[in-house]
């Protein structure tokens, strides 16, 4: 099964409700993007780093969040110095780093099922407009069960083709995989309808 990005803990941030964290993150992002000030961005970045410590995460976890972005940040910094000045370069790098780190912190401290619960709670008032929160939850849980199924079908088709000694282009792998999946989709849909 897939392992989520959540890291267990018992800090204030871990115990905070998922909805509260999401609203706080949205406000944080809006504030940072609407006020272009280096001082604000730098303090925001400092605050986020402090929040990692409050949540009980070390420097290693913090750096792991920013690592996929390091090259982009370096290019961004160089481009901004070339196009504008050092202040502008510092601002855009600090702002992007603060935003990505803050969003990463919400992900690290919130269980996947709590975030799904927050989505369900947000969608429920929209039911009168034709949004079916129950169906959204069904789709989410079905996808989680289908991911291992899809990998399994890919492996089976690969093995079958290898057994026949055929090394074929990628198209001939995708087509039989999707046909098998669509056939099982019909059976699964019938089973769900029969049960309800």
């Amino acid at each position: 099964m897939i392992v989520g990005l959540y890291r267990a803990g018992n800090s204030v941030l871990h115990r905070m409700r998922a909805g509260v964290k999401l609203v706080a993150l949205a406000l944080f992002g809006t504030l940072l993007l609407s006020l272009p000030s280096l001082w604000l961005a730098a303090s925001a970045l400092f605050l986020v780093c402090l929040a990692y410590a409050v949540a009980g995460f070390g420097l290693h976890t913090l750096l792991a969040q920013i690592r996929p972005l390091l090259i982009v940040l370096a290019i961004l910094f160089a481009a901004q110095i070339w196009l504008a000045d050092l202040t502008a370069a510092g601002l855009s790098v600090a702002r992007l780093a603060a935003l990505v780190l803050a969003a990463g912190l919400v992900t690290l401290t919130t269980r996947t099922e709590d975030l799904v619960g927050a989505i369900h709670a947000t969608l429920s008032p929209l039911e009168r407009f034709g949004v079916d929160a129950g169906k959204v939850s069904l789709a989410i849980s079905l996808t989680l069960r289908f991911i291992p199924l899809v990998s399994q079908v890919v492996d089976e088709v690969k093995e079958a083709q290898a057994a026949r000694g055929s090394r074929k282009p990628v198209v001939t792998l995708i087509v039989p995989v999707i046909i098998r999946l669509l056939k099982s989709a019909d059976a699964i849909a019938e089973a769900i309808d029969a049960r309800s």
């Binding site: 789709a139 991911i147 899809v150 989709a185 699964i188």
Partner: peptide, 15 residues
């Protein structure tokens, strides 16, 4: 069936 197909292609995307 629509929901199952939607979920299936989301899973395919993950794979």
């Amino acid at each position: 069936r629509d929901i199952v197909l939607i979920a299936l292609f989301a899973a395919l995307m993950a794979v």
